[in-house]
Simulated scan of single mutants.
Amino acid sequence: MDFATLKAKGLVRTAMAPPAVRAEFPFGLGEPGLHEIAESAYGDRAAATGFLLAAIGQGVRGAWVWVRQTSIVLDTGEVPEAALPGLSSRLRLTVQVRTAQAGLWAAEEAVVSGAANLVIAEVEQSDFTSSRRLTLASTRHGVPVVLVLPYSCEGATAAASRWRLASRPSAPNRHDPHAPGHPRWRAVIERCRAAPSATGQAFDLEWNDETLSLSVVSGLAAGPAAPPAAADENRFRLRAG
């Protein structure tokens, strides 16, 4: 019996190749597959969430399912609609669960339901088995999955990429030098299957809430402003005297 006959009888199925992932920033984030975004330190949850929404918010259409573990909700609060510019008109279903395992299960069920175009899960921990199941489900159904994890997450998972996020000093405000400007983050990609050579690379990013765009910037200040030079201080004292 030849191959065509076997295929006609349903005895052979043609496997569909997974979609190609672009080997450039943000390295497939927002495309089918499992990705992880972790805090760099305690308190960087806002940076992780901001990076997630900025990097994929404008590219994913349709309904979102956002799974959140209760302990994280109590610690960080809710994500207000005002913090979702351009996204608030979309359907966003929030699911709250008590345990990390329940959150991972809910995320998988959301993927296979066929009702979601993006699944986000904020849980305290993940494991290789759960991440492998989410990877298979995401690839099979074409639904991107993003796990938002605390700073303590370590170890191997089946995720295609893992980002580590930290907040940075905001950009200068051109209207008021004493006011904050556009938010900035530092994103380090710790794991990247699409571009293994990018592993360990750090990106300094700026979000422009006027143009709704994310850009890579350079020359960010890493510490406090330098004090004035001694000569300048002496001239000021002479004039004051």
Rank of each mutant, 00 (worst) to 15 (best):
L52A: 14
G142S: 06
I72T: 14
L214R: 14
A116F: 04
V119L: 06
A226Y: 00
A23T: 03
T70A: 12
R68H: 07
L212T: 06
Y42V: 08
F27Q: 12
T139G: 07
R193I: 00
H35E: 03
L214M: 07
P32V: 04
R45F: 05
P180G: 08
N234T: 15
R133F: 01
R133E: 01
V112W: 10
L149S: 10
A166V: 00
V145Q: 13
A225R: 07
L147W: 11
R68Q: 07
S131L: 01
T70I: 13
Q125H: 12
I189T: 14
N234G: 11
A54I: 02
S170G: 14
L6V: 07
R186L: 02
S152A: 15
V148F: 07
A106G: 06
W185C: 05
V73F: 03
A110C: 11
H35F: 06
V188D: 07
P18A: 01
G86I: 00
V217N: 09
G43Q: 12
V217T: 15
T5K: 10
G114V: 01
W163R: 15
L34H: 15
E109G: 12
R239A: 12
P18N: 08
L93H: 06
A166L: 02
G86E: 00
A198C: 09
T49V: 14
R168D: 12
V73E: 13
A221V: 13
V67H: 03
V146P: 13
V73M: 07
A171K: 12
M16F: 01
A107C: 08
C192R: 15
K9G: 04
A115S: 05
E190L: 11
P26W: 03
Q58E: 08
A23G: 08
N234H: 13
L118Q: 09
I72A: 10
P19M: 00
L134F: 03
D176L: 00
V111E: 14
P169K: 11
P169G: 07
T49Q: 14
A116C: 05
P85W: 00
R184S: 05
V217R: 06
E39K: 14
S130M: 09
K9S: 04
G30S: 02
A221P: 12
T5R: 11
A194L: 05
H178Q: 08
G103A: 10
S88G: 06
E233M: 12
C192M: 09
H178N: 10
T76M: 02
R164V: 03
R61K: 09
V188S: 13
R61V: 08
T5V: 06
G77V: 11
P180L: 00
A229V: 13
